[in-house]
Simulated scan of single mutants.
Amino acid sequence: MFFASDNAGPAHPKVMEALVAANNGYAMGYGADPIMDEVRAQVRDIFEAPEAAVYLIINGTAANSVLLASMTKPWETIFCTQCAHIHEDECNAPEFYTQAKLTLVPTTDGKMTSDDLRQTILGEENRGVHGPQRGPLSITQVTEKGTVYTLDEIRALASTAQDFGMQTHLDGARFANALVALDCSPAEMTWKAGIDTVSFGGTKNGALGVEACVIFNPEIAWEFELRRKRGGHLLSKHRYLSAQMQAYLADGLWLDMARSANARCAQLAEGLRKHDAVNMLFEPQANMIFFEMPRRAHKRMLDAGAVYYVMNGDPETGDPDTPLVGRLVCDWSMTEEGVSRFVDLLNG
């Protein structure tokens, strides 16, 4: 039972089969492979955006960083939450690629509000040549706390950004999990809500390693291509990215995997709520749970074996009654039996 991260789960067999099939013979490199033509059409169809520019990159940090660099000038600042992945988990890669700074917006349950965004933008002011200029807004969906922005919340945030002449980027590493949680269309969660660019994740949801960078603002597409190449993220044997994304999108596989991960998370949350020692820190809305329970309970779980998840302290050392925060993430391959086993261990 491995709940540490959806990055740790296996790639779906259909994705692996597609890679094997793509390995036959020869294909032009750098995105000129015929599979990429099909992927571009698939993504445009899914997003109801026939003019969207679509590019593939191998991981989420690069996708976020190159997209933001294409939207940001070095003298600007990017607005994001205090717990955004681009702030906490990307080793300053967005700052490296953009040469800009990040300005952090306070959150409640991992989400910023349009009012807090507006106040943060105004608080940063615009001091002419002496201060950072207003760059794009970046929204993380699903948030790093496992919560999901509603469509109204996304629209309000993007509208606030537009009031200040700012574009909006969506970090969608768990895009599919958010989409099935909201039961909406990709278009509704993106360009129809005012989003300009999307990091459309595949890696956390059953791919081996591929993210689609979807650009609804055609003015920045060429700059993205140049920055992707200059940043070392244009793969020569690109067909192996294309094959993954093609299989990922075919016949709704990406949605099926997200539904499975979310369902297992809901099952897990139900089991946790029944335990008196467990305190849920946020309402889990997709495939990730943050919870708190005494150190002794964490230790007992880990000692029982076959359980792995992330926590914020040492289960072996310290006051056994001290509460520690744990994070549980369900990927597409997690089974009902695996979740039940975890809950049974918790109940002793």
Rank of each mutant, 00 (worst) to 15 (best):
7 N>C: 11
7 N>Y: 14
8 A>N: 10
10 P>D: 15
11 A>M: 05
11 A>K: 01
12 H>I: 11
13 P>H: 04
14 K>E: 15
18 A>Q: 09
18 A>I: 05
21 A>S: 08
22 A>C: 00
23 N>D: 11
26 Y>I: 10
31 G>C: 00
32 A>Q: 15
36 M>D: 02
37 D>F: 09
39 V>C: 09
45 D>G: 09
46 I>G: 04
47 F>Q: 05
48 E>A: 13
50 P>S: 04
51 E>M: 12
54 V>H: 00
56 L>V: 01
58 I>T: 15
59 N>Y: 12
68 L>S: 04
69 A>K: 01
70 S>K: 07
74 P>I: 08
75 W>D: 15
85 H>M: 11
97 Y>K: 10
98 T>E: 05
101 K>W: 10
102 L>A: 00
102 L>G: 00
102 L>N: 03
103 T>L: 09
104 L>G: 02
104 L>Y: 07
104 L>I: 04
105 V>D: 05
111 K>L: 03
112 M>A: 04
114 S>F: 07
116 D>G: 10
119 Q>R: 15
120 T>A: 04
122 L>Y: 07
124 E>C: 12
124 E>V: 14
126 N>L: 15
127 R>E: 14
127 R>G: 12
133 Q>Y: 15
137 L>I: 13
140 T>V: 11
141 Q>Y: 06
142 V>H: 03
143 T>Y: 09
145 K>L: 13
146 G>M: 08
146 G>L: 11
154 I>L: 10
154 I>T: 14
155 R>Q: 14
159 S>R: 13
159 S>Y: 06
161 A>E: 00
163 D>A: 03
165 G>W: 10
166 M>L: 05
168 T>H: 08
168 T>V: 06
171 D>Q: 10
171 D>Y: 06
176 A>P: 00
183 D>Q: 11
186 P>R: 03
187 A>W: 05
187 A>S: 14
187 A>P: 05
189 M>T: 04
189 M>W: 06
189 M>Q: 13
190 T>L: 07
191 W>C: 05
192 K>N: 09
200 F>S: 00
203 T>P: 02
203 T>M: 12
204 K>E: 15
206 G>C: 08
209 G>R: 03
211 E>H: 12
214 V>E: 07
217 N>D: 15
219 E>L: 09
221 A>V: 06
224 F>G: 02
224 F>D: 01
225 E>L: 13
225 E>K: 11
227 R>I: 08
233 H>W: 12
235 L>N: 14
236 S>P: 08
238 H>L: 07
240 Y>F: 11
244 Q>T: 07
246 Q>V: 05
247 A>W: 01
247 A>Q: 03
248 Y>P: 02
251 D>N: 06
253 L>P: 01
254 W>V: 05
256 D>S: 08
257 M>W: 06
263 A>Q: 09
273 R>D: 02
278 V>R: 02
278 V>D: 01
279 N>G: 01
280 M>I: 15
281 L>G: 00
284 P>Y: 03
287 N>P: 01
290 F>C: 10
290 F>V: 03
292 E>D: 07
298 H>S: 00
300 R>W: 10
303 D>V: 09
305 G>D: 13
313 G>H: 07
314 D>P: 10
315 P>E: 00
315 P>R: 15
316 E>I: 14
316 E>P: 02
316 E>Y: 14
319 D>I: 06
320 P>K: 08
327 R>W: 04
328 L>H: 07
329 V>F: 12
329 V>Y: 11
334 M>N: 08
339 V>Y: 01
342 F>E: 07
345 L>V: 10
